[in-house]
Amino acid sequence: MVAYNYVFVGLLLLTAVGFALAPLALVALVAPRKPSPTKGDAYECGVRARGDAWVRFRIQYYVYAIMFVVFDVETVFLYPWAAAYGALGVFALVEMTVFLALLFAGLAYAWAKGVMRWT
């Protein structure tokens, strides 16, 4: 059964988490612990930091995230197409060209509207 492959993935997941946590546990045992108010401050500059770091960010980031999601979904369509291409034919190529053209139109629109300009 194919899912048994993923038994290994599950085990690997546990191993990786263990591998990450084991040295941290060791650190908790071995390393010194001398907290001080200054040490607990945010490492920003010599004097006391002002204001909260959790602020509103610019919208450009969000545009990139949206474009990322859109193109990520597109790749999910592209992979099965690519895997099946040998068994299909020219029609599949035409279909995919239309699909890609549609997506490229979206990208070109974003490009033309200048939302991809960083500043």
Partner: peptide, 29 residues
């Protein structure tokens, strides 16, 4: 198998998905 189904039986759905994605992108812009 998924790819073959996309390209034959669900060809229209496939293109519609492309259109939907484009619409999402344009909407975001």
């Amino acid at each position: 198998v998924v790819g073959e189904q996309f390209m034959t039986r669900y060809a229209l759905t496939f293109e519609l998905a492309g259109l939907l994605l484009t619409a999402a992108l344009v909407g975001a812009v």
